[in-house]
Design a protein around this nucleic acid. Structure first.
Lengths: 160, 160
DNA sequence: CTCTTTTGGTTCAGTGCTGAAATATTTAGC
DNA sequence: GCTAAATATTTCAGCACTGAACCAAAAGAG
């Protein structure tokens, strides 16, 4: 199995480096803007968004973990913090006593509404408004190819 | 200045969400692969790469901070760790006694060489080989637009 | 030359995350 | 039913990073 490494060609190398750097700078930038706009880490903002779109503005801890594909312990910590800020409230789960529900409070919803416009400005300024409609379509197509691949079942080596 | 928020259109919304999720899953994936391949956090790998490409395999701390656009304190911590692993060595800067040089050791270079092939496989598998040549070109073009914008001088509000 | 300011790095305290262990509750086996 | 296995969540120890305070050397001002 001593397969020879297929190094990247010059074209591939250039594309990869540009893409890697661009996405890193972009996410850094958007994260900083969001932090300034919402006074919370971007990951917490995401949790609030999920809750705000859920029925009853309520979700199970494990659901939150799944949708953000992150570890349970992270959600636990995060909800603690958000509870301290009174943006989220914990409620016992009626049908499963092990479980907890995270409920977005009115304060939390208000905080989200206050931050959203600034977030949109940031996304427009650093991404959307920079691209032609065609480029945006291309970017979406490419993203979907990656998503299809990355959300596939098997871990890395599908066949055997 | 009560400008009305220009919310994203449906098309823009779809593209943005797909892109945001795809890049997050992709970087998560690549980072995990790299961690497994190189037995170090991806950010440390990046430092070794920079050093390996520098003349004398040597760089100033501040240079490293600039190129990775991160804070000095991060570099300080990171180089400590890499020094513990004997992959990097600190040397006093001859012409500026405040400064330090980080030098990549032979062990460090070997560690890099050992990890590189697996890293390339990962980048191919989860990105390059999924796209058509045209898509790859489009992705590079888009990335350059973003890079030009993000590396511009002024911070967000260019004029005054 | 001194005196102040700037620059290069490190140290400190605190934050968000992770993997592993611990706890409580539900489900499944018999 | 009663025990065994699985599941939902929290707690714990440790890591990478950040902003602020700090120290030492260099550069500038008079």
């Amino acid at each position: 199995m001593a397969s020879v490494t297929r190094w990247l060609t010059d074209d591939e190398q250039r594309a990869w480096r540009a893409f890697a750097l661009a996405t890193r700078l972009l996410t850094d930038r958007l994260d900083r803007d969001l932090l300034a706009a919402a006074d919370m880490p971007p990951t917490y903002y995401e949790l609030l968004v999920l809750l705000s779109e859920a029925p009853e503005r309520t979700m199970r801890m494990s659901e939150l973990a799944n949708w953000t594909n992150s570890k349970p312990s992270r959600i636990s910590h995060a909800i603690n913090k958000l509870e301290q800020k009174a943006w989220v409230r914990r409620e016992h789960c009626a049908d499963d006593r092990r479980g907890w529900l995270a409920v977005l409070t009115d304060d939390g919803f208000a905080a989200l509404q206050a931050a959203a416009p600034r977030h949109v400005v940031s996304v427009r300024e650093h991404l959307i408004d920079l691209l032609t409609p065609e480029q945006l379509r291309n970017l979406e197509d490419i993203s979907r190819v990656l998503l299809d691949h990355l959300t596939e079942p098997g871990p890395s080596s599908p066949s055997r």
